[in-house]
């Protein structure tokens, strides 16, 4: 077993044991913090597929996070108001069921990622960073100025959506759902990274010309990766909105894109558990430093700067002392 695998196992154990401790100690706030960390980790895991394996520096993943959030907001708000979303060709009332919301969020963010990716992947390098940022901003301003779903004020729902067989209002049960989703996605991504698709995608990042010479189109590989990546981040957005029972244009803001990127980098780019470690650290720092000072972002900034300048490969890279396996 490599150091990285041991570290991953420790992280999983922590994700399971910490909330159980919090539950037994009757600390629901700690469970909520852990839930937030797991959801943000999922958003980062989505970005890591495009960024880490694919080498696509997307500065617009807030777009998919926000679309997922609004998928939840729109479906649930219609359902709670008994106001059908559409009546043709059949009546659709909206939904308060998580699986339906997740599916919608995944589909909607996947479609958006397909469209945005198809256009953005025509560019590369810094232009790609900027065009993805532009698409994110486009949706941000659209969500602010479109009055039907709350505009700038956002959209809140009264009760958390339901999951068959579980009580989602109980923090530990909701955490269980989130952790289940996170682990399922991590498992699938671990498989994907080792599949022919994942290997070809990694090769397309390193030497696109060679990939093209053997008859594989880097553009199509990257488009598929970008779409999958958007879907995962969209799912995280739906869960995040459900955690807060609130969705607002902030989810679309470029700071959100930046923060999702921060999780990936703090933890370690192209590491399976990189975004998970990054998100957990981010939440711990937010909690600890936020308690020390109102200006905790200064310390976060300084820490981030030190990591970028001196600890290449993020926390996992520093702890394991190895470059990511395929870099």
């Amino acid at each position: 077993m490599t150091t990285e695998r041991i570290l991953n196992a420790v992280v999983v154990a922590g994700l399971v044991l910490f909330p159980i401790w919090a539950w037994m100690a009757d600390e629901p706030f700690m469970i909520t913090l852990a839930t937030k960390a797991a959801i943000l980790a999922l958003a980062g895991v989505g970005l890591n597929l495009a960024l880490g394996i694919g080498g696509l520096v997307s500065f617009g993943h807030a777009a998919f996070f926000g679309i997922g959030g609004y998928a939840m907001g729109i479906l649930a708000s219609h359902a709670q108001a008994y106001d059908p979303i559409f009546t043709q060709p059949f009546v659709f009332e909206g939904s308060k069921s998580m699986p339906v919301i997740w599916l919608t969020a995944i589909l909607a963010s996947g479609l958006a990622a397909l469209g945005i990716g198809a256009l953005s992947l025509r560019t590369s390098g810094v232009y790609f960073i900027m065009i993805t940022l532009a698409f994110g901003q486009m949706l941000y301003f659209f969500s602010i100025s479109w009055p039907a779903y709350g505009g700038e004020d956002g959209l809140s729902i009264y009760v958390r959506n339901s999951f068959p067989g579980l009580n989602t209002l109980d923090p530990i049960q909701f955490y269980g759902i989130v952790l289940g989703v996170l682990c399922a996605v991590l498992f699938l991504l671990a498989r994907l990274a080792k599949s022919p698709f994942g290997l070809a995608l990694g090769a397309a990042r390193q030497t696109p010309l060679r990939v093209e010479t053997v008859g594989i189109s880097p553009y199509r590989l990257q488009l598929v990766a970008f779409t999958l990546s958007g879907m995962i981040t969209g799912l995280a957005g739906a869960l995040f909105a459900d955690l807060n029972r609130f969705v607002s244009p902030v989810m679309f803001s470029w700071q959100t894109s930046g923060e999702i990127m921060v999780f990936v980098i703090i933890g370690g780019v192209a590491r399976l558990f990189g975004p998970v470690v990054g998100a957990i650290l981010f939440i711990i720092l937010e909690h600890l430093l936020g308690g020390l000072s109102d200006y905790w972002h200064i310390y976060l900034g300084a820490l981030l700067l030190l990591i970028v300048l001196f600890a290449r490969g993020g926390v996992i890279g520093t702890l394991t002392g190895r470059e990511a396996a395929h870099d």
Binding site: V57, I129, G258, M261, H297, G301
Partner: peptide, 22 residues
């Protein structure tokens, strides 16, 4: 690479903004 540049200067934004607020 550009990723490191984006991140490091994002960190600088945090430091500048909070420092000015301070």
């Amino acid at each position: 690479d550009h990723l490191d540049q984006v991140l490091a200067t994002f960190a600088l934004i945090l430091i500048f903004s909070e420092g000015t607020r301070w």
